[in-house]
Design a protein around this nucleic acid. Sequence first.
DNA 1: TAGAGACATTGATGTGGATCAAGTTCTTTC
DNA 2: GAAAGAACTTGATCCACATCAATGTCTCTA
Lengths: 232, 232
Amino acid sequence: MTEMNQKHTCNTSHKGCVSLVPIFNHLDTEQMNEVMETVQSQSFKKGELVYHAGDKSDVLTIVNKGSLRLYRLSESGKEQLVRVLRPGEFTGELALFNEKVHENYAEAMEATSVCQITRSQLQALLVKYPSISLKILQELSSRVDQTEQQAARFTTESTEQRLASYLVELLGSDSQSDIVTLPLTKKDLASYIGTTPETVSRKLKELEELNLIKRISSSKIKIVDEDNLLFL
Amino acid sequence: MTEMNQKHTCNTSHKGCVSLVPIFNHLDTEQMNEVMETVQSQSFKKGELVYHAGDKSDVLTIVNKGSLRLYRLSESGKEQLVRVLRPGEFTGELALFNEKVHENYAEAMEATSVCQITRSQLQALLVKYPSISLKILQELSSRVDQTEQQAARFTTESTEQRLASYLVELLGSDSQSDIVTLPLTKKDLASYIGTTPETVSRKLKELEELNLIKRISSSKIKIVDEDNLLFL
DNA sequence: TAGAGACATTGATGTGGATCAAGTTCTTTC
DNA sequence: GAAAGAACTTGATCCACATCAATGTCTCTA
Protein backbone atom coordinates (compact mmCIF):
# COMPACT_ATOMS: atom_id res chain seq x y z
CA MET A 1 0.00 0.00 0.00
CA THR A 2 1.12 3.54 0.44
CA GLU A 3 4.58 3.63 1.83
CA MET A 4 3.87 6.69 3.90
CA ASN A 5 1.73 4.90 6.45
CA GLN A 6 2.91 2.41 8.98
CA LYS A 7 0.77 -0.67 8.98
CA HIS A 8 -0.66 -2.34 12.01
CA THR A 9 -1.16 -5.83 10.72
CA CYS A 10 -3.09 -7.88 13.19
CA ASN A 11 -3.52 -11.49 12.32
CA THR A 12 -6.34 -12.08 14.73
CA SER A 13 -10.01 -11.43 14.15
CA HIS A 14 -10.30 -11.38 10.41
CA LYS A 15 -13.61 -12.83 11.17
CA GLY A 16 -15.45 -9.56 11.01
CA CYS A 17 -13.95 -8.79 7.66
CA VAL A 18 -15.18 -11.95 6.12
CA SER A 19 -18.41 -12.79 7.87
CA LEU A 20 -19.79 -9.26 7.78
CA VAL A 21 -19.27 -8.28 4.20
CA PRO A 22 -21.80 -8.97 1.47
CA ILE A 23 -19.28 -10.32 -0.98
CA PHE A 24 -18.31 -13.20 1.35
CA ASN A 25 -21.05 -13.69 3.91
CA HIS A 26 -23.09 -16.06 1.76
CA LEU A 27 -20.37 -18.70 1.91
CA ASP A 28 -20.62 -21.57 4.37
CA THR A 29 -18.42 -21.77 7.46
CA GLU A 30 -15.71 -23.87 5.98
CA GLN A 31 -15.38 -21.71 2.89
CA MET A 32 -15.28 -18.59 5.03
CA ASN A 33 -12.44 -20.06 7.02
CA GLU A 34 -10.53 -20.47 3.81
CA VAL A 35 -11.14 -16.87 2.86
CA MET A 36 -10.10 -15.70 6.30
CA GLU A 37 -6.73 -17.26 5.84
CA THR A 38 -6.04 -15.28 2.71
CA VAL A 39 -7.15 -11.83 3.78
CA GLN A 40 -4.87 -9.46 5.64
CA SER A 41 -6.23 -7.21 8.32
CA GLN A 42 -4.93 -3.69 8.68
CA SER A 43 -5.71 -0.58 10.70
CA PHE A 44 -5.50 3.09 9.91
CA LYS A 45 -5.69 6.09 12.16
CA LYS A 46 -7.85 9.07 11.35
CA GLY A 47 -6.41 10.99 8.44
CA GLU A 48 -4.13 8.22 7.17
CA LEU A 49 -4.30 7.32 3.50
CA VAL A 50 -5.08 3.76 2.47
CA TYR A 51 -3.99 4.65 -1.06
CA HIS A 52 -3.66 7.74 -3.17
CA ALA A 53 -4.03 8.72 -6.81
CA GLY A 54 -1.13 7.38 -8.84
CA ASP A 55 -0.63 4.42 -6.52
CA LYS A 56 -0.80 1.12 -8.35
CA SER A 57 -1.22 -1.27 -5.46
CA ASP A 58 -3.46 -4.11 -6.54
CA VAL A 59 -5.44 -5.14 -3.50
CA LEU A 60 -9.13 -5.04 -2.85
CA THR A 61 -9.74 -3.14 0.39
CA ILE A 62 -12.86 -3.98 2.37
CA VAL A 63 -13.90 -1.78 5.27
CA ASN A 64 -14.39 -3.74 8.46
CA LYS A 65 -14.81 -1.02 11.07
CA GLY A 66 -14.81 2.75 10.71
CA SER A 67 -15.10 4.58 7.40
CA LEU A 68 -13.09 5.74 4.42
CA ARG A 69 -13.46 8.96 2.56
CA LEU A 70 -12.90 8.60 -1.19
CA TYR A 71 -12.07 11.81 -2.96
CA ARG A 72 -10.50 13.14 -6.13
CA LEU A 73 -8.44 16.18 -6.91
CA SER A 74 -9.31 18.10 -10.05
CA GLU A 75 -6.64 19.46 -12.38
CA SER A 76 -6.94 22.75 -10.56
CA GLY A 77 -6.39 21.03 -7.20
CA LYS A 78 -9.97 21.27 -5.98
CA GLU A 79 -11.09 18.39 -3.80
CA GLN A 80 -14.21 16.46 -4.74
CA LEU A 81 -15.71 13.95 -2.32
CA VAL A 82 -16.70 10.89 -4.34
CA ARG A 83 -18.27 8.73 -1.65
CA VAL A 84 -17.86 7.44 1.87
CA LEU A 85 -17.19 3.75 2.41
CA ARG A 86 -18.81 2.11 5.41
CA PRO A 87 -18.27 -1.38 6.84
CA GLY A 88 -18.85 -4.06 4.23
CA GLU A 89 -18.07 -1.82 1.27
CA PHE A 90 -14.90 -2.13 -0.77
CA THR A 91 -12.63 -0.11 -2.99
CA GLY A 92 -9.55 -0.56 -5.11
CA GLU A 93 -11.29 -2.41 -7.92
CA LEU A 94 -9.93 -0.16 -10.66
CA ALA A 95 -6.29 -0.93 -9.86
CA LEU A 96 -7.14 -4.53 -9.17
CA PHE A 97 -9.18 -5.51 -12.20
CA ASN A 98 -7.73 -3.11 -14.73
CA GLU A 99 -4.15 -3.01 -13.50
CA LYS A 100 -4.33 0.76 -13.56
CA VAL A 101 -3.26 3.33 -11.02
CA HIS A 102 -5.76 4.63 -8.52
CA GLU A 103 -7.59 7.78 -9.52
CA ASN A 104 -8.99 8.41 -6.05
CA TYR A 105 -7.60 9.07 -2.62
CA ALA A 106 -8.86 6.85 0.21
CA GLU A 107 -8.49 8.38 3.65
CA ALA A 108 -9.59 7.05 7.03
CA MET A 109 -12.22 9.35 8.52
CA GLU A 110 -11.74 7.81 11.97
CA ALA A 111 -9.86 4.84 13.39
CA THR A 112 -10.62 2.28 10.71
CA SER A 113 -9.79 -1.36 10.16
CA VAL A 114 -9.90 -2.95 6.76
CA CYS A 115 -9.24 -6.33 5.17
CA GLN A 116 -7.17 -6.60 2.08
CA ILE A 117 -6.87 -9.28 -0.51
CA THR A 118 -4.40 -9.30 -3.38
CA ARG A 119 -5.20 -9.77 -7.03
CA SER A 120 -3.83 -13.28 -7.26
CA GLN A 121 -5.53 -14.39 -4.07
CA LEU A 122 -8.85 -12.96 -5.18
CA GLN A 123 -8.53 -14.51 -8.59
CA ALA A 124 -8.05 -17.91 -7.03
CA LEU A 125 -11.13 -17.40 -4.91
CA LEU A 126 -13.22 -16.22 -7.83
CA VAL A 127 -12.41 -19.33 -9.79
CA LYS A 128 -13.21 -21.55 -6.85
CA TYR A 129 -16.36 -19.72 -5.75
CA PRO A 130 -18.03 -18.02 -8.68
CA SER A 131 -20.73 -16.72 -6.39
CA ILE A 132 -18.21 -14.19 -5.11
CA SER A 133 -17.90 -12.74 -8.61
CA LEU A 134 -21.61 -12.38 -8.70
CA LYS A 135 -21.65 -10.41 -5.48
CA ILE A 136 -18.94 -8.11 -6.72
CA LEU A 137 -20.76 -7.65 -10.00
CA GLN A 138 -23.86 -6.74 -8.05
CA GLU A 139 -22.02 -4.19 -6.01
CA LEU A 140 -20.23 -2.64 -8.95
CA SER A 141 -23.31 -2.37 -11.11
CA SER A 142 -25.16 -0.69 -8.32
CA ARG A 143 -22.23 1.69 -7.86
CA VAL A 144 -22.37 2.57 -11.55
CA ASP A 145 -26.04 3.34 -11.13
CA GLN A 146 -25.54 5.48 -8.05
CA THR A 147 -22.72 7.43 -9.59
CA GLU A 148 -24.68 8.05 -12.77
CA GLN A 149 -27.55 9.33 -10.70
CA GLN A 150 -25.24 11.58 -8.75
CA ALA A 151 -23.79 12.96 -11.99
CA ALA A 152 -27.26 13.51 -13.43
CA ARG A 153 -28.26 15.48 -10.37
CA PHE A 154 -25.44 17.91 -10.80
CA THR A 155 -26.81 18.97 -14.14
CA THR A 156 -30.54 18.71 -13.66
CA GLU A 157 -31.20 19.80 -10.09
CA SER A 158 -30.55 22.96 -8.12
CA THR A 159 -28.21 23.01 -5.16
CA GLU A 160 -31.21 23.23 -2.86
CA GLN A 161 -32.77 20.13 -4.41
CA ARG A 162 -29.54 18.18 -4.15
CA LEU A 163 -29.20 19.10 -0.51
CA ALA A 164 -32.80 18.13 0.17
CA SER A 165 -32.38 14.80 -1.64
CA TYR A 166 -29.27 14.12 0.34
CA LEU A 167 -31.05 14.67 3.64
CA VAL A 168 -33.95 12.45 2.65
CA GLU A 169 -31.55 9.71 1.59
CA LEU A 170 -29.84 9.87 4.95
CA LEU A 171 -33.22 9.40 6.53
CA GLY A 172 -33.96 6.41 4.34
CA SER A 173 -31.27 4.21 5.76
CA ASP A 174 -31.33 5.74 9.23
CA SER A 175 -35.11 5.43 9.33
CA GLN A 176 -37.15 4.83 12.48
CA SER A 177 -36.50 8.36 13.68
CA ASP A 178 -37.07 11.54 11.68
CA ILE A 179 -33.76 12.91 12.89
CA VAL A 180 -30.69 12.50 10.72
CA THR A 181 -27.09 12.85 11.77
CA LEU A 182 -24.80 14.36 9.18
CA PRO A 183 -21.91 11.93 8.79
CA LEU A 184 -19.76 14.57 7.12
CA THR A 185 -18.34 17.95 7.93
CA LYS A 186 -20.07 20.80 6.15
CA LYS A 187 -17.03 21.09 3.94
CA ASP A 188 -17.25 17.47 2.82
CA LEU A 189 -20.98 17.64 2.50
CA ALA A 190 -20.64 20.73 0.33
CA SER A 191 -18.07 18.98 -1.84
CA TYR A 192 -20.23 15.89 -2.15
CA ILE A 193 -23.28 17.74 -3.40
CA GLY A 194 -21.20 20.07 -5.52
CA THR A 195 -21.33 23.38 -3.74
CA THR A 196 -19.56 25.42 -1.04
CA PRO A 197 -19.88 25.36 2.76
CA GLU A 198 -21.33 28.87 2.67
CA THR A 199 -24.12 27.80 0.38
CA VAL A 200 -24.90 24.71 2.45
CA SER A 201 -25.27 26.95 5.45
CA ARG A 202 -27.59 29.32 3.65
CA LYS A 203 -29.69 26.59 2.07
CA LEU A 204 -30.17 24.79 5.38
CA LYS A 205 -31.37 28.06 6.80
CA GLU A 206 -33.81 28.48 3.93
CA LEU A 207 -35.14 24.95 4.35
CA GLU A 208 -35.63 25.66 8.02
CA GLU A 209 -37.51 28.88 7.27
CA LEU A 210 -39.78 26.88 4.96
CA ASN A 211 -40.48 24.55 7.88
CA LEU A 212 -39.15 21.57 5.99
CA ILE A 213 -36.39 20.81 8.47
CA LYS A 214 -35.35 21.84 11.97
CA ARG A 215 -31.71 22.09 12.98
CA ILE A 216 -31.22 20.42 16.36
CA SER A 217 -27.46 20.80 16.61
CA SER A 218 -24.76 21.41 14.08
CA SER A 219 -24.85 17.80 12.94
CA LYS A 220 -28.40 16.75 13.85
CA ILE A 221 -31.32 17.72 11.70
CA LYS A 222 -34.96 16.87 12.11
CA ILE A 223 -36.79 16.18 8.86
CA VAL A 224 -40.13 17.87 9.31
CA ASP A 225 -41.67 17.50 5.88
CA GLU A 226 -40.08 14.77 3.81
CA ASP A 227 -42.57 14.99 0.96
CA ASN A 228 -42.12 18.66 0.29
CA LEU A 229 -38.36 18.37 0.61
CA LEU A 230 -38.44 16.24 -2.51
CA PHE A 231 -40.83 18.62 -4.23
CA LEU A 232 -38.65 21.71 -4.26
CA MET B 1 -37.77 -6.35 -23.43
CA THR B 2 -39.95 -3.40 -24.12
CA GLU B 3 -43.27 -4.45 -25.43
CA MET B 4 -43.58 -1.37 -27.60
CA ASN B 5 -40.96 -2.41 -30.10
CA GLN B 6 -41.26 -5.15 -32.60
CA LYS B 7 -38.20 -7.34 -32.55
CA HIS B 8 -36.29 -8.48 -35.54
CA THR B 9 -34.70 -11.62 -34.27
CA CYS B 10 -32.22 -12.96 -36.74
CA ASN B 11 -30.65 -16.21 -35.84
CA THR B 12 -27.81 -15.93 -38.24
CA SER B 13 -24.55 -14.09 -37.76
CA HIS B 14 -24.24 -13.91 -34.01
CA LYS B 15 -20.64 -14.22 -34.79
CA GLY B 16 -19.93 -10.54 -34.65
CA CYS B 17 -21.62 -10.26 -31.31
CA VAL B 18 -19.43 -12.83 -29.75
CA SER B 19 -16.11 -12.58 -31.50
CA LEU B 20 -15.95 -8.80 -31.45
CA VAL B 21 -16.76 -7.98 -27.88
CA PRO B 22 -14.12 -7.79 -25.16
CA ILE B 23 -16.07 -9.87 -22.68
CA PHE B 24 -16.07 -12.91 -24.97
CA ASN B 25 -13.32 -12.54 -27.54
CA HIS B 26 -10.63 -14.08 -25.37
CA LEU B 27 -12.35 -17.48 -25.49
CA ASP B 28 -11.20 -20.14 -27.91
CA THR B 29 -13.21 -21.06 -30.98
CA GLU B 30 -15.09 -23.93 -29.45
CA GLN B 31 -16.09 -21.94 -26.41
CA MET B 32 -17.20 -19.06 -28.58
CA ASN B 33 -19.42 -21.38 -30.53
CA GLU B 34 -21.07 -22.38 -27.31
CA VAL B 35 -21.66 -18.75 -26.41
CA MET B 36 -23.04 -18.03 -29.86
CA GLU B 37 -25.71 -20.60 -29.35
CA THR B 38 -27.02 -18.92 -26.25
CA VAL B 39 -27.07 -15.28 -27.34
CA GLN B 40 -29.99 -13.80 -29.22
CA SER B 41 -29.45 -11.25 -31.92
CA GLN B 42 -31.81 -8.35 -32.29
CA SER B 43 -32.09 -5.18 -34.35
CA PHE B 44 -33.49 -1.75 -33.61
CA LYS B 45 -34.28 1.12 -35.87
CA LYS B 46 -33.20 4.64 -35.13
CA GLY B 47 -35.19 6.01 -32.21
CA GLU B 48 -36.44 2.67 -30.91
CA LEU B 49 -35.97 1.91 -27.25
CA VAL B 50 -34.06 -1.19 -26.19
CA TYR B 51 -35.38 -0.68 -22.66
CA HIS B 52 -36.70 2.16 -20.58
CA ALA B 53 -36.67 3.25 -16.96
CA GLY B 54 -38.97 1.06 -14.92
CA ASP B 55 -38.50 -1.92 -17.20
CA LYS B 56 -37.27 -4.98 -15.33
CA SER B 57 -36.09 -7.13 -18.22
CA ASP B 58 -33.05 -9.08 -17.12
CA VAL B 59 -30.83 -9.42 -20.14
CA LEU B 60 -27.38 -8.13 -20.81
CA THR B 61 -27.42 -6.17 -24.06
CA ILE B 62 -24.21 -5.97 -26.03
CA VAL B 63 -23.94 -3.60 -28.96
CA ASN B 64 -22.85 -5.31 -32.13
CA LYS B 65 -23.35 -2.64 -34.76
CA GLY B 66 -24.57 0.93 -34.45
CA SER B 67 -24.89 2.78 -31.17
CA LEU B 68 -27.16 3.25 -28.20
CA ARG B 69 -27.85 6.45 -26.36
CA LEU B 70 -28.25 5.95 -22.60
CA TYR B 71 -30.07 8.74 -20.86
CA ARG B 72 -31.99 9.52 -17.68
CA LEU B 73 -34.93 11.74 -16.93
CA SER B 74 -34.71 13.87 -13.81
CA GLU B 75 -37.69 14.31 -11.50
CA SER B 76 -38.46 17.50 -13.35
CA GLY B 77 -38.42 15.67 -16.67
CA LYS B 78 -35.12 17.04 -17.92
CA GLU B 79 -33.12 14.67 -20.05
CA GLN B 80 -29.54 13.86 -19.12
CA LEU B 81 -27.33 11.95 -21.51
CA VAL B 82 -25.40 9.38 -19.49
CA ARG B 83 -23.23 7.83 -22.18
CA VAL B 84 -23.19 6.44 -25.67
CA LEU B 85 -22.62 2.73 -26.18
CA ARG B 86 -20.57 1.68 -29.18
CA PRO B 87 -19.94 -1.81 -30.56
CA GLY B 88 -18.51 -4.14 -27.93
CA GLU B 89 -19.99 -2.24 -24.98
CA PHE B 90 -22.88 -3.54 -22.94
CA THR B 91 -25.68 -2.35 -20.71
CA GLY B 92 -28.45 -3.76 -18.59
CA GLU B 93 -26.19 -4.92 -15.77
CA LEU B 94 -28.23 -3.21 -13.05
CA ALA B 95 -31.40 -5.12 -13.83
CA LEU B 96 -29.45 -8.27 -14.50
CA PHE B 97 -27.20 -8.51 -11.46
CA ASN B 98 -29.34 -6.67 -8.95
CA GLU B 99 -32.75 -7.77 -10.17
CA LYS B 100 -33.82 -4.15 -10.14
CA VAL B 101 -35.66 -2.08 -12.71
CA HIS B 102 -33.71 -0.05 -15.22
CA GLU B 103 -32.99 3.53 -14.26
CA ASN B 104 -31.87 4.56 -17.73
CA TYR B 105 -33.41 4.69 -21.16
CA ALA B 106 -31.51 2.98 -23.96
CA GLU B 107 -32.35 4.27 -27.42
CA ALA B 108 -30.90 3.34 -30.79
CA MET B 109 -29.15 6.36 -32.33
CA GLU B 110 -29.11 4.72 -35.73
CA ALA B 111 -29.93 1.27 -37.11
CA THR B 112 -28.39 -0.87 -34.42
CA SER B 113 -27.97 -4.57 -33.83
CA VAL B 114 -27.35 -6.01 -30.42
CA CYS B 115 -26.86 -9.40 -28.79
CA GLN B 116 -28.74 -10.30 -25.70
CA ILE B 117 -28.17 -12.93 -23.10
CA THR B 118 -30.49 -13.70 -20.22
CA ARG B 119 -29.56 -13.86 -16.57
CA SER B 120 -29.74 -17.63 -16.31
CA GLN B 121 -27.76 -18.16 -19.49
CA LEU B 122 -25.10 -15.72 -18.42
CA GLN B 123 -24.88 -17.27 -14.99
CA ALA B 124 -24.23 -20.64 -16.50
CA LEU B 125 -21.49 -19.18 -18.65
CA LEU B 126 -19.89 -17.35 -15.74
CA VAL B 127 -19.66 -20.54 -13.76
CA LYS B 128 -18.17 -22.41 -16.67
CA TYR B 129 -15.79 -19.66 -17.80
CA PRO B 130 -14.77 -17.48 -14.88
CA SER B 131 -12.62 -15.38 -17.20
CA ILE B 132 -15.83 -13.84 -18.49
CA SER B 133 -16.60 -12.52 -15.02
CA LEU B 134 -13.20 -10.98 -14.92
CA LYS B 135 -13.81 -9.15 -18.17
CA ILE B 136 -17.12 -7.84 -16.94
CA LEU B 137 -15.55 -6.78 -13.67
CA GLN B 138 -12.91 -4.91 -15.64
CA GLU B 139 -15.47 -3.13 -17.71
CA LEU B 140 -17.67 -2.22 -14.76
CA SER B 141 -14.86 -0.94 -12.61
CA SER B 142 -13.62 1.21 -15.42
CA ARG B 143 -17.17 2.51 -15.90
CA VAL B 144 -17.34 3.44 -12.23
CA ASP B 145 -14.11 5.33 -12.65
CA GLN B 146 -15.26 7.17 -15.75
CA THR B 147 -18.56 8.13 -14.24
CA GLU B 148 -16.91 9.38 -11.06
CA GLN B 149 -14.61 11.49 -13.14
CA GLN B 150 -17.50 12.85 -15.11
CA ALA B 151 -19.32 13.74 -11.89
CA ALA B 152 -16.23 15.38 -10.45
CA ARG B 153 -15.90 17.54 -13.53
CA PHE B 154 -19.37 18.94 -13.12
CA THR B 155 -18.41 20.40 -9.79
CA THR B 156 -14.79 21.36 -10.26
CA GLU B 157 -14.51 22.56 -13.83
CA SER B 158 -16.12 25.32 -15.85
CA THR B 159 -18.35 24.60 -18.81
CA GLU B 160 -15.59 25.72 -21.13
CA GLN B 161 -13.13 23.31 -19.57
CA ARG B 162 -15.57 20.43 -19.78
CA LEU B 163 -16.20 21.15 -23.44
CA ALA B 164 -12.47 21.37 -24.12
CA SER B 165 -11.80 18.09 -22.28
CA TYR B 166 -14.54 16.44 -24.25
CA LEU B 167 -13.05 17.51 -27.56
CA VAL B 168 -9.60 16.33 -26.57
CA GLU B 169 -10.98 12.98 -25.47
CA LEU B 170 -12.68 12.56 -28.83
CA LEU B 171 -9.33 13.16 -30.43
CA GLY B 172 -7.67 10.58 -28.22
CA SER B 173 -9.52 7.60 -29.63
CA ASP B 174 -9.94 9.03 -33.11
CA SER B 175 -6.26 9.99 -33.24
CA GLN B 176 -4.13 10.06 -36.40
CA SER B 177 -5.90 13.16 -37.59
CA ASP B 178 -6.37 16.36 -35.62
CA ILE B 179 -9.95 16.61 -36.82
CA VAL B 180 -12.71 15.26 -34.63
CA THR B 181 -16.23 14.43 -35.66
CA LEU B 182 -18.89 15.17 -33.08
CA PRO B 183 -20.83 11.95 -32.64
CA LEU B 184 -23.72 13.77 -30.99
CA THR B 185 -26.16 16.49 -31.82
CA LYS B 186 -25.43 19.77 -30.08
CA LYS B 187 -28.39 19.09 -27.85
CA ASP B 188 -27.01 15.75 -26.68
CA LEU B 189 -23.51 17.12 -26.40
CA ALA B 190 -24.82 19.94 -24.24
CA SER B 191 -26.70 17.51 -22.05
CA TYR B 192 -23.67 15.27 -21.73
CA ILE B 193 -21.37 18.00 -20.52
CA GLY B 194 -24.07 19.57 -18.39
CA THR B 195 -25.01 22.72 -20.20
CA THR B 196 -27.34 24.06 -22.91
CA PRO B 197 -27.03 24.07 -26.71
CA GLU B 198 -26.77 27.87 -26.66
CA THR B 199 -23.78 27.76 -24.37
CA VAL B 200 -22.06 25.07 -26.42
CA SER B 201 -22.45 27.28 -29.44
CA ARG B 202 -20.99 30.29 -27.68
CA LYS B 203 -18.11 28.39 -26.11
CA LEU B 204 -17.12 26.80 -29.40
CA LYS B 205 -17.03 30.28 -30.85
CA GLU B 206 -14.82 31.48 -28.00
CA LEU B 207 -12.44 28.55 -28.40
CA GLU B 208 -12.21 29.34 -32.08
CA GLU B 209 -11.46 33.00 -31.36
CA LEU B 210 -8.67 31.85 -29.06
CA ASN B 211 -7.27 29.83 -31.97
CA LEU B 212 -7.57 26.59 -30.03
CA ILE B 213 -9.96 24.98 -32.51
CA LYS B 214 -11.28 25.58 -35.99
CA ARG B 215 -14.80 24.66 -36.99
CA ILE B 216 -14.76 22.89 -40.34
CA SER B 217 -18.43 22.04 -40.57
CA SER B 218 -21.21 21.76 -38.04
CA SER B 219 -19.95 18.39 -36.85
CA LYS B 220 -16.26 18.51 -37.76
CA ILE B 221 -13.79 20.41 -35.65
CA LYS B 222 -10.07 20.75 -36.08
CA ILE B 223 -8.10 20.71 -32.84
CA VAL B 224 -5.47 23.39 -33.31
CA ASP B 225 -3.87 23.55 -29.89
CA GLU B 226 -4.51 20.46 -27.79
CA ASP B 227 -2.20 21.49 -24.94
CA ASN B 228 -3.80 24.84 -24.30
CA LEU B 229 -7.27 23.37 -24.60
CA LEU B 230 -6.53 21.40 -21.45
CA PHE B 231 -5.00 24.43 -19.76
CA LEU B 232 -8.04 26.68 -19.75
C1' DT C 1 -37.14 21.66 -55.65
C1' DA C 2 -39.97 24.02 -52.57
C1' DG C 3 -41.52 24.29 -48.14
C1' DA C 4 -41.79 22.77 -43.28
C1' DG C 5 -39.79 21.50 -39.26
C1' DA C 6 -35.77 20.63 -36.78
C1' DC C 7 -31.44 22.34 -35.48
C1' DA C 8 -27.93 26.12 -34.73
C1' DT C 9 -26.46 30.74 -33.85
C1' DT C 10 -26.66 35.25 -31.74
C1' DG C 11 -28.42 38.81 -28.71
C1' DA C 12 -30.55 40.70 -24.39
C1' DT C 13 -31.57 39.92 -19.74
C1' DG C 14 -31.89 37.81 -15.15
C1' DT C 15 -30.25 35.04 -11.35
C1' DG C 16 -28.23 31.18 -8.57
C1' DG C 17 -24.61 30.50 -6.32
C1' DA C 18 -19.31 31.41 -6.01
C1' DT C 19 -16.16 34.31 -3.84
C1' DC C 20 -14.24 37.41 -0.47
C1' DA C 21 -14.43 39.16 4.01
C1' DA C 22 -15.76 39.54 8.79
C1' DG C 23 -17.63 37.76 12.66
C1' DT C 24 -19.14 33.66 15.74
C1' DT C 25 -19.22 29.25 17.76
C1' DC C 26 -17.37 24.95 18.47
C1' DT C 27 -12.98 21.78 19.42
C1' DT C 28 -8.73 20.76 20.47
C1' DT C 29 -4.66 20.67 23.23
C1' DC C 30 -1.40 21.96 26.54
C1' DG D 1 -9.92 25.73 31.60
C1' DA D 2 -7.80 29.22 28.60
C1' DA D 3 -5.91 30.02 24.30
C1' DA D 4 -5.45 28.79 19.50
C1' DG D 5 -7.35 27.15 15.70
C1' DA D 6 -11.03 24.76 13.11
C1' DA D 7 -15.39 24.82 11.47
C1' DC D 8 -19.54 27.40 10.75
C1' DT D 9 -22.51 31.44 9.78
C1' DT D 10 -23.80 35.78 7.70
C1' DG D 11 -23.31 39.65 4.62
C1' DA D 12 -21.98 42.13 0.24
C1' DT D 13 -20.58 41.72 -4.34
C1' DC D 14 -19.96 39.73 -8.89
C1' DC D 15 -20.11 36.77 -12.83
C1' DA D 16 -20.83 32.49 -15.49
C1' DC D 17 -24.39 30.59 -17.40
C1' DA D 18 -29.50 29.70 -18.01
C1' DT D 19 -33.38 31.41 -20.14
C1' DC D 20 -36.16 33.72 -23.48
C1' DA D 21 -36.59 35.44 -27.99
C1' DA D 22 -35.52 36.21 -32.81
C1' DT D 23 -33.27 34.90 -36.81
C1' DG D 24 -30.57 32.00 -39.69
C1' DT D 25 -29.32 27.44 -41.66
C1' DC D 26 -29.73 22.75 -42.63
C1' DT D 27 -32.31 18.50 -44.15
C1' DC D 28 -35.97 15.83 -44.88
C1' DT D 29 -39.98 14.63 -47.53
C1' DA D 30 -43.64 15.04 -50.64
